[in-house]
């Protein structure tokens, strides 16, 4: 296998692994192969020495899992990284922000649903009774506004669910840094 075939196949194997920075890895391997060639090694022999594409992708993936564990503090030892003081301050700030943002989300969701239900009822009543263009425009507008507000509320909750954990880790790191500076 020559360099281009190898890089093409490796690129395909890395495609299945979303977390790896494909471009950077390919650049790394391209440079390694070129350096090996420049040092007098045979291109195909060096590529054969690198091992199978699957094994390379697996090795990189295994390490990604480890890095991910470090990031998500799933490793027991890593959970001990932050001191109790950092955790107390960090969690206090975190839960305050969660409560504030969550309240905003609930208010958007609640008012959106109310607007939507109110507009839908009034619209159906109006259609059943008398047709009025101005009221029709108003209730249709309210219906759209209600839907938008509900979606915004959902987006806030989605953000809270997806982003809260990485943000918490970042926050704990920031608190730790701040304590180090003060102390």
């Amino acid at each position: 296998m020559n360099k281009y075939e190898f890089l093409y196949k490796l690129g395909n194997a890395l495609n299945q692994q979303k977390r790896t920075d494909q471009k950077e890895i390919l650049g790394y391997y391209e440079e390694l192969i070129q350096d090996a060639i420049d040092s007098g090694q045979g291109e195909e022999q060096f590529i054969a020495k690198l091992g199978s594409i699957d094994k390379i992708a697996r090795t990189l993936s295994k390490d990604e899992t480890f890095v991910e564990q470090v990031k998500t503090k799933q490793n027991f030892q890593l959970q001990m990284v932050f001191s109790t003081t950092v955790k107390i301050i960090g969690y206090f700030i975190f839960f305050t922000v969660v409560i504030v943002v969550g309240s905003i989300g609930i208010s958007f969701l609640g008012s959106g649903i109310s607007m939507f239900v109110f507009a839908a009822i009034r619209l159906s009543m109006m259609i059943a009774q008398t047709f009025d263009l101005y009221n029709l425009m108003m209730f249709v507008g309210l219906l759209i506004l209600g839907s938008g507000t509900v979606l915004f509320g959902i987006a806030i909750f989605k953000w809270l669910i997806i982003e809260s954990r990485p943000r918490l880790e970042k926050l704990l790191e920031m608190v730790q840094e701040a304590i180090k500076k003060v102390g």
């Binding site: 890895i25 690198l50 390379i56 390490d63 480890f66």
Partner: peptide
Amino acid sequence: LSESTLYPILKR
């Protein structure tokens, strides 16, 4: 030290 072991170490 294999080539595929070095890359994650450097990245870390």
